[in-house]
Write a protein that binds this DNA or RNA. Structure first.
Lengths: 150, 150
DNA sequence: TTCTTAAATGCGAACTGTGTGCATATAGTA
DNA sequence: TACTATATGCACACAGTTCGCATTTAAGAA
């Protein structure tokens, strides 16, 4: 589970990563980082944009995208690309991990899944690939939407 | 491994699926199906288009997309959506299965992976989701590109 | 504090892959 | 062969993301 102190820690880590590269800390940038660090719901760029706008109404969407790009390059956020419906971002766990995605409400959860290392190394053996990344999405209907359905 | 008879079988299955719905069997449509049925390399829409054009030079890209959509709806092809670089299609195994993808040459392979049912049912238990689909991509460098590298 | 300047921003326009509207052509059937 | 609804080809629309460029500004120096 995410906690407030988690977000604070992530915020500081991201700021530090930028400072190390001598990137400037503009108010918009800091706000974007704050939103990404404390988000629990894998927001889209548009959602980040709207959230940021609450506090910095002049911020442009292009700035959000540029900062997302930068943070991606620094390995500080994880991008979940979806060809339809736009990408989603995780500023809390910026490393590859499985997701469970509700096809009704688009909610994205992080399940626990042991044996993933085993699975991956077995795969590397049988295919000869050097595995460097993965994307594991399970699609279904979340408990909440199941209740609503009937 | 795919064989010629596999493709023939898939071709017939797809044609049959269309016929059942009283869809017409135009030359372009049949050619698109043929290309998808015998493809082993998860082609993009553009690649299908070019392949089809070899035999039917007047075919338009829109027609390719419309037929891909139809075959998707009938569950006859699997779409692998990628936000960057376009979608890829599998007419041979039109059901969810894991992929191993080379980040250099974009080659896509189908590895064997047992225990997937176990994994999925365990996931359903712990999250409460009703899992209906999945998308499991492992990214890495294929043997061929590893050789080229050094 | 003020000055300096490279980096960041805001705006609009471009881009890419995919879908649509409409006029024309044609598969399937009588 | 004629009929009609479906399929096609073309151009254009669309959505999410990126880019070009003029303007602003963070961060360090004087």
């Amino acid at each position: 589970m995410n906690t407030v102190s988690d977000s604070r820690k992530r915020f500081k880590e991201m700021v530090e990563a930028l400072r190390e590269q001598d990137y400037r800390l503009t108010p918009q940038r800091l706000e974007i980082i704050r939103v990404l660090a404390q988000s629990r719901d894998h927001p889209s760029a548009e959602e980040v944009f709207e959230e940021v706008r609450n506090n910095f109404p002049t911020t442009s969407l292009a700035t959000v995208y540029r900062n997302i790009l930068k943070l991606k390059e620094l390995g500080q956020i994880l991008e979940l690309g979806f060809p339809e419906g736009g990408n989603r971002y995780d500023g809390n766990r910026p490393f590859p991990h499985p997701h469970v995605i509700c096809i009704r409400c688009r909610r994205i959860m992080d399940p626990d899944l042991e044996n993933l290392e085993d699975l991956t190394s077995r795969l590397a053996e049988t295919t000869g690939f050097k595995i460097v990344n993965h994307r594991l999405d399970f699609f279904g209907i979340c408990p909440g939407c199941q209740d609503k359905a009937e």
